[in-house]
Design a protein around this nucleic acid. Structure first.
Length: 428
RNA sequence: GCGGGCGUAGCUCAGCUGGUAGAGCCCCGGAUUGUGAUUCCGGCCGUCGCGGGUUCGAAUCCCGUCGCUCGCCCCA
């Protein structure tokens, strides 16, 4: 592959073979959102860098070292979006959607983070994202979970684990953080380099450490759920009741903290054990302070995002395939006259039967290889037109998937005959 | 940014201790003139990631480099 151009590292092509699963996921998500009354929203992939700095947080890894930030020709500092929420909030404020209104929205598309690629982690990756603005109570928190749970059912995904936690309000979190710093400070000698660094910037993240040497010490740390303010505690309890009432299984994980600064109160994460180190398939939480922080009026908000690459590879790992496409017909054309007449025959068939797939053999080839292509095309029927058929203005209909006698059919009768054959499950 | 593994035909891979490369799949054609998925025969496809070094000679050894991959970090 000497001088050939290559894709940018961590940015993957999606080949026709893998797209049916993607489209299945996207279509199910689209139907799900519609069924819950959520509206699609689209925002740019590029925003002012400042938007992400102010929303995600200056001292998060995303902003400090993962953003694609550049200066455009006009001298503006822009960033490729590393996540969807900030842009959506900006757009909602800018378009006046949040003045005493409620909105339930969703969006989907590529996100960009300059990380070292590995299983389930790419520099361009895709998220399906759901957000609700203006709802304060825990009912919407529960709806977020119910929607994602239903999506797993629609997609045939089982075995995901739901973990929930509450981060409280900024005030209660600040108090908790003080206790945590005090606790870790007492055990400073046990901390590894990463944790010592976090002790300054974001001590909550130490709770998330995967270092087994720290596990015991972390287990003894004060739990955030024991240090919630009254409002957050009641909210969290109601949230759990609503989930239980809907039969959703969950575990409370006081060590579940999110990597973005804007979260408050409810946070949650759906994880799998079927993939590699990147086990979070979907996660989100409440961000009641973000809208005001970005210049809008005080507006409670909550949202989640799922990683499409991770979801798709989970589905592949568990043998879930996209449902079969519409039934098809492959048109074998033997000889020049057949090619000339056959294209027109196929067009008339398409007029009459818009729902079926009609693939015409292109590029000639021997009769044998045309039939081989018909077989490999997944088509259920082959429509064979050669010189004999052209002379009689007929076509031979051959069943490729079932034992059935080949039959000859006049061109004008083809729509009815093909239609009824394809409506039949086995193509007889 | 840091570690481990790997880079040979479009794909999956074989090539032991150095002698200028193979298989399967795919694709194309054929096995009495027009009937697919099996079988048989034939054909197409390679700057052995790239650059340098050692050597009479390197895909095979050494160095560098790029890429992929898995993990750390972080996260969807």
């Amino acid at each position: 592959m000497g001088g050939a151009l290559q894709a940018v590292r961590g940015m993957n092509d999606l080949l026709p073979g893998q797209l049916p699963l993607w489209q299945f996921v996207e279509q199910q998500a689209r139907e799900l959102f519609a069924a819950y009354g959520y509206q699609e929203f689209r925002v740019p992939l590029v925003e002012h860098a400042e938007l992400f700095q102010r929303s995600i947080g200056e001292h998060t890894d995303i902003v400090e070292k993962e953003m694609y930030t550049f200066e455009d020709r006009g001298g503006d500092r822009l960033s490729l979006r590393p996540e969807a929420t900030a842009g959506l909030v900006r757009a909602a404020i800018e378009n006046g959607l949040l003045h005493n209104q409620k909105h339930r929205l969703w969006t989907a598309g590529p996100m960009f983070r300059h990380e070292r690629p590995q299983q389930g982690r790419y520099r361009q990756f895709h998220q399906i994202d759901c957000e609700a603005f203006g709802y304060e109570g825990p009912d919407v928190d529960a709806e977020m979970i119910l929607m994602s749970a239903r999506l797993w059912r629609r997609l045939g995904i089982g075995g995901l684990r739901l973990r929930i936690n509450s981060l409280g309000t900024p005030e209660s979190r600040r108090m908790y953080r003080g206790r945590l710093v005090e606790y870790f400070g007492r055990h400073r000698t046990l901390l590894d380099a990463d944790s010592l660094r976090r002790l300054e910037g974001n001590p909550l993240r130490i709770l998330d450490s995967k270092n087994p040497a720290l596990a015991e010490m972390i287990a003894g740390a004060p739990a955030i759920t024991d240090h919630l303010d009254d409002g957050s505690r009641v909210h969290f309890e109601r949230f759990q009741e609503l989930l239980a009432g809907c039969g959703i299984a969950f575990t409370i994980d006081p060590r579940l903290v999110r990597g973005l600064d804007y979260y408050s109160r409810t946070v949650f994460e759906w994880t799998t054990t079927a993939l590699g180190a990147q086990d979070a398939v979907c996660s989100g939480g409440r961000y009641d302070g973000l809208v005001a922080q970005l210049g809008g009026g005080a507006t409670p908000a909550i949202g989640w995002a799922l990683g499409v690459e991770r979801l798709v590879s989970l589905m592949q790992a568990t043998g879930i395939a996209a449902p079969a496409g519409p039934p098809g017909l492959y048109v074998v054309l033997a000889g020049d006259r057949a090619v000339r007449e056959g294209l027109a025959v196929a067009e008339r068939l398409r007029d009459a039967l818009p729902g079926i797939v009609i693939e015409v053999n292109l590029g000639g080839g021997s009769f044998k290889s045309q039939l081989r292509r018909a077989d490999r095309s997944q088509a259920r029927l082959a429509l064979i037109i050669g010189d004999d058929e052209v002379a009689r203005r007929t076509a031979a209909i051959k069943s490729l998937r079932a034992e059935a006698a080949q039959q000859e059919c006049a061109w004008e009768d083809l729509p009815a005959r093909i239609g009824s054959l394809l409506r039949n499950e086995d193509g007889r």
